[in-house]
């Protein structure tokens, strides 16, 4: 809960991780390359006082996350978008099994998202079903650029992907976060192309597709698709981080999203630990669109719009009653720690 201009605002971090990228977990040079590339993004866009040493960035652990995200970071609930990358990291980067440990400790604080990989075909269908039965999975993170056995990616409209999406409908998994963002080493193939979302969103109108990183640098493709498909949402992670060093550019992005989509389909995300949610949220609350951009686009980033982006939109997607949840969170372990701290 963050207080701004006398108002309490419920915050859901729509995209966060507890990763292990320590050298012991690197499977090969790609594991190292991956985390170093992340680290460049971290140092490149964070305010100086929030920059970590590389060693801490590789593996920061549970207590650091709780402290950063919930105790200091203004976040009420976080969505674990599990990311596997088994070809780069021996035990995976942040799997749902690993994230589940924190979900068990703080059940009211996390939304645990799993995944599927259609390249596992028939065998994967059973595995997927088992994951849903064994873990409190509420949504999925889909990584179309993930490597697997020589394949450098897959598409949401592949025939096997459709089998999995059908199963999602059957099992009641409705929210799918699809990573479509800037190329990260070593993922260089153009597997981040967003057009597959268009097909899947049309053919599965009851599923919600949250496009993480708003397809950057393919914003125009994303906006075009999201304008037609009402079940396509904008995940703001990565785009948020421009707010500090490139505020005018951030204004351009948010103005485009408000123009093409609407204020009900934009979700805040920090991508922690890429960036710390505290400064992102504080700067966002204070942020005002430059007058010329506001006028040119004919959009407004009002306090009400910010509330929606920071929490209400995600709450709606995940069926969270904010008033009821606020009461519950006051009384969990983190809630009590917060109360004694103030």
């Amino acid at each position: 809960m963050v207080r701004h201009n006398g108002q309490d605002i419920f915050v859901i971090d729509g995209h966060m991780h507890l990763w292990d990228a320590s050298p012991e977990n690197w499977r090969n040079q790609y594991g190292e390359g991956w985390i170093r590339c992340f680290y460049d993004y971290h140092t490149g866009l964070s305010p100086e006082e929030y920059v970590w040493p590389f060693e801490k960035y590789c593996k920061y652990g549970e207590e650091t996350l709780i402290d950063d995200v919930f105790l200091k970071g203004h976040v009420d609930m976080g969505i674990f978008n599990s990311t596997y990358l088994h070809e780069f990291f021996k035990n995976g980067f942040n799997t749902h099994e690993q994230n589940h440990v924190l979900k068990e400790k703080y059940p009211e604080r996390f939304i645990l998202n799993g995944s599927f990989d259609p390249r596992e075909e028939e065998a994967g269908l059973d595995k997927f079903q088992q994951m849903i039965e064994s873990y409190p999975i509420q949504g999925l993170k889909l990584y179309t650029a993930e490597w697997r056995d020589g394949s450098k990616g897959w598409r949401l409209n592949d025939p096997w992907a459709y089998r999995y999406l059908e199963l999602c409908e059957e099992l009641g998994i409705k929210n799918l976060h699809v990573h479509k963002g800037p190329t990260i080493y070593p993922l260089s193939r153009d597997a981040f192309d967003v057009h597959d979302v268009d097909y899947a969103a049309t053919d599965f109108p009851h599923l919600n597709f949250i496009v993480e990183h708003v397809g950057l640098p393919r914003l125009e493709d994303f906006c075009w698709i999201a304008t037609q498909e009402k079940n396509v949402y904008a995940g703001m992670s990565v785009a948020m981080a421009f707010i500090h060093g490139r505020p005018r550019y951030f204004a351009d992005i948010i103005a485009n999203l408000l123009y093409w989509l609407d204020e009900d389909r934009i979700l805040f995300g920090s991508d922690y630990a890429l960036w710390h949610p505290r400064w992102l949220i504080e700067k966002f609350l204070d942020f005002e669109l430059p007058e010329d951009i506001e006028k040119e686009y004919g959009v407004a980033l009002t306090p009400q719009v910010k509330r929606k982006i920071l929490g209400e939109n995600a709450a709606r997607l995940y069926g969270i009653d904010i008033a009821a949840q606020t009461a519950i969170l006051k009384d969990d372990e983190i809630g009590r720690r917060l109360a004694t701290a103030t």
């Binding site: 490149g44 800037p182 950057l216 640098p217 393919r218 914003l219 906006c223 421009f242 550019y249």
Partner: peptide, 16 residues
């Protein structure tokens, strides 16, 4: 929107 999209890389490269 195409311009803003292209500027994503410019902004990222600049920051890096």
């Amino acid at each position: 929107t195409v311009r803003v999209s292209l500027d994503a890389n410019g902004s990222l490269c600049g920051a890096l």
